[in-house]
Design a protein around this nucleic acid. Structure first.
Length: 414
DNA sequence: CGTGCCGGGAT
DNA sequence: ATCCCGGCACG
């Protein structure tokens, strides 16, 4: 008793079935793709003149030290948006998707409009701006084209002379440590804050060379040593930590760890791992630099990449920090699944007193008991709504692919 | 019971 | 590789 009509299948069969295949599928694909793209911004800060060469040693030193305490974070997909605005849902469910790009950059595009005539020291291309705008904005209290203003009480060359360098990179140090360089020449206890300074000092005063040429045969290096002081700049140190990272959690960890998220612990250290695996000759940097100052000389060959690397890290880390939930209590912790290397955290920063310490301790306490037991058995289950709950069964094609495949949700990673 | 997602199967 | 589902753990 069917109709004689051929009955085009565009009928009311399902209504959604049709649209699903062609339309939405491609859209979601696109969406995902874009996500990936936006994540992989890697901005080379290519700026160095031959004059900065010996400065590089300083940079290297600082990088190395900071590496020892810095997490191996590097959070790839920009999940920041979720963190600082709980309203991603809006554009997610509303017609046009592309939630990531929308929410993350939408609010801040304003920066591009005002030409930054006031700061010559930000050569960063637009992309990078996107990456570190989150940290810059909140710290200043508003969008401002102004150059790095209030901060950096840390490490400036007091020797103050010819080569003035403004490197945005090494500015931020997370642990409150100050590196100084002391002249070891007999009867001369001069202490300077930069390696360049001390080198020049030695070169000119003790070795009696001309200061103008920057060629350093490295001899100076044997006459000074590196010393570290503890200083705490609470305000800054705090911001550079990455406590609030729960939201920034990244789905597929780029580092080869099977763990769901290595994410930036406030002060995860894991010195051996991070540096060791990466570079053969830079391995074990931390202990070296600490005990034997002369090692500095050996290392200083190629740190260019390291600098960039840390820079990225830093920006990422602070980005997450930006929205700093005042109460980083139980919730923010719970996301942390890997109990590994966690307990150790408390140990290392112990000497740096102040805020960071306190926090890390708190974290350790909170996280270890529940996680330790739970993580052993299972993954506990993600909390927070996932695609399914958010969009509902009927909008299944809005889910992230993982959810559609009943895999661990990739969009709302917890 | 709904939900998240691991393990495994199909293509 | 992409897509899907059974089934389990968990709330």
């Amino acid at each position: 008793c069917k109709f004689p009509e051929p009955a085009e299948e565009q009928r009311s069969t399902d209504g959604k079935r049709v649209s699903r295949d062609s339309d939405t599928r491609s859209v979601s694909l696109l969406e995902q793709k874009r996500k990936v793209v936006s994540s992989s911004i890697d901005v080379p800060h290519a700026r160095r003149s031959e004059e900065e060469v010996d400065m590089d040693k300083v940079t290297a030193a600082m990088v190395l030290t900071s590496l020892s305490t810095s997490p191996l974070v590097r959070s790839p997909p920009v999940r920041v948006s979720e963190g600082l605005s709980g309203s991603w849902k809006d554009n997610g469910s509303a017609g046009p998707f592309t939630p990531s790009s929308n929410s993350s950059s939408g609010g801040y595009w304003s920066w591009s409009a005002p030409s930054d005539q006031s700061n010559p020291s930000t050569p960063s291309p637009p992309l990078s701006a996107d990456s570190f705008k989150p940290f810059r904005v909140p710290s200043l209290g508003g969008v401002g084209p102004g150059p790095a203003g209030p901060e950096d009480p840390i490490l400036d060359e007091q020797d103050g002379s010819s080569l003035l360098f403004d490197e945005p990179i090494p500015r931020k140090r997370k642990n409150s440590m100050k590196v100084m360089f002391k002249c070891l020449w007999k009867n001369c206890g001069k202490v300077l804050s930069t390696a360049a300074g001390i080198q020049r000092h030695i070169r000119t005063i003790h070795l009696g060379r001309n200061c103008d040429s920057d060629l350093s045969d490295g001899e100076e290096d044997f006459y000074y040593t590196e010393i570290k002081l503890n200083t705490d700049s609470v305000a800054d140190g705090l911001s550079s930590l990455s406590p609030a990272s729960p939201s920034v959690l990244s789905p597929p960890p780029p580092p080869p760890s099977p763990l769901p998220s290595v994410s930036q612990l406030p002060d995860s250290h894991k010195p051996t791992q991070s540096s060791d695996t990466k570079e053969p000759h830079a391995g074990g940097t931390t202990p070296l630099s600490r005990s034997a100052p002369s090692a500095l000389y050996l290392i200083h060959t190629d740190h260019a990449y390291q600098v960039m690397k840390t820079d990225v890290n830093n920006s990422a880390g602070s980005a997450s920090t930006s929205f700093t939930p005042t109460n980083s209590s139980s919730f923010s912790i719970s996301w942390q699944s890997p109990p590994v290397t966690f307990t150790g955290t408390t140990v290392s920063p112990s000497k740096s007193q102040g805020f960071g310490d306190q926090r890390s301790q708190t974290i350790a306490v909170l996280s270890s008991p529940p996680r330790a037991t739970a993580a052993l058995s299972r993954k506990v289950r993600g909390e927070g709504k996932k695609c399914r709950k958010v969009y509902g069964m009927e909008n299944r094609d809005m889910w992230c692919t993982a959810c559609r495949w009943k895999k661990a949700c990739q969009r709302f990673t917890d």
